Amino acid sequence: MSHEVPLPPDLYGRGRDDRFLRFLDAVTRFYLPISTRSDRYGRRVFPPEPGPLRLVVTDREAAAEDVVALRLAAPDGGPLPPWQPGAHLDLDLPSGRRRQYSLCGDPADRSGYRIAVRRLPDGGGGSVEVHDALHPGARLTVSRPRNAFPFAGDRSVLLIAGGIGITPILPMAREAAARGLDWRLVHAGRSRASMPFADELARLGADRVELLADDEHGTPDGADLLGRAAPGAAVYVCGPAPMLDAVRTAFDASGATALHFERFAAAPVTDGRPFTLRLRRSGTELPVPADRTALDVLREYDPATPYSCRQGFCGVCRRQVRSGTVEHRDRKLTDQERAAGQMLVCVSRAPEGECLELDG
């Protein structure tokens, strides 16, 4: 039961409520529920999470050797949610696989999203499915754009892309050019034929873009790449693990002041110790070596094990732990979810010798 709290007497001793305090009381009663998102009983009210998007493939083109670019739009042609350079989408493919792809179009174009995917015959199957199954007219469930690789718009910028790593970097170059920043971009790849969007990059500024094909120039090392950075520049890099490792190793000796990067694949396991997974339903025990992830071992046992980012921030590989101590290394789960026994098996582990019992 609620009780009305009477207003204090008039500040000047008059025989009525103070008008100013009555006014403040009315304003508070009106705006407090709005500002705190609470209902009339004081309970917090949170808006529902926006749902996924239902999109259709409206265009498909070859962007480079073994690279296909797809345009995704709303079936009714309506505007799509906004995004910023560095953002990505989660695609639910027809097979049930979920994969992440960077947005590589123009953020100002709300009529469609563009992604580009290189075919990897020896990968997890997602890229092959995109190439073989997604043609104009195909319908997909797609997450709203999320950004784990944001572009801060630093005054001086060096952008480095390796192969298909140009996909998040291209919108950054477009943004840097639009803002009039001091920017340079280096795109390295096996050959010119394998490097997508060269024409678009040249239109942004041929004097600011450098293409380094391995078959012409050899494979650049980290110090060579960072040598293009102006003193005090911020560096943004996306590419294969050897490129990232080379840039990170050479960074401290460069004149750059900030390093931002996004990996194609999972980072190597560091400080890992062997432990065991037990599948509760079957009783199967799976040893996890010190240099492999729980996800690697689960996928080897069951190739249908769901996963996406392999970096601990999307939550697709979430599993319920029934017993055992988890070393959480993700960037997704809340303290409450961890306390409830949830785990992201792509990055999180257990102490040496521990056995984690998982549902399933």
Rank of each mutant, 00 (worst) to 15 (best):
P171I: 13
E327F: 02
T257W: 00
Q342S: 07
A62D: 11
L181H: 08
V157H: 04
D224V: 00
P289I: 06
R43K: 09
E175H: 12
D66I: 01
R338P: 01
C346E: 00
G15N: 15
D25C: 09
A241H: 06
L344M: 13
G222Q: 04
R37A: 15
S2Y: 06
V186W: 00
Y101N: 09
R192N: 03
R16D: 10
L259F: 07
A304P: 02
L24Y: 05
A246F: 10
A198W: 08
P6N: 01
A198M: 13
T28D: 11
D335C: 00
R14G: 10
G163W: 08
W183C: 07
A193M: 08
R118W: 03
H260W: 13
V57I: 07
G239R: 02
V321G: 06
A241D: 14
R280V: 03
G360R: 15
H3C: 11
P289N: 03
D10Q: 08
D330F: 05
R71A: 15
L185K: 01
L159Q: 06
V128L: 13
G124I: 02
G153T: 02
R119H: 14
G283E: 03
L11S: 13
R99M: 05
R19W: 10
A176L: 07
D221Y: 04
D271P: 05
D224I: 00
V5G: 01
L298Y: 05
L212W: 12
T276L: 11
Q336P: 00
R184T: 03
R119W: 14
Y31I: 13
F23G: 15
D92F: 05
G222D: 08
L11Y: 09
C317P: 01
D252S: 15
I164M: 05
C104H: 09
F197D: 09
R114H: 14
L201H: 12
G78C: 01
D76R: 00
F251K: 04
S35Y: 15
D59R: 12
P85R: 10
C317R: 03
D221R: 04
R110Y: 02
R280L: 02
G112R: 12
R22C: 15
P240Q: 01
R263H: 14
M1E: 04
R40H: 08
L89E: 11
Y41C: 05
E327P: 00
D109R: 13
T305V: 15
V5F: 06
R14A: 14
R208I: 14
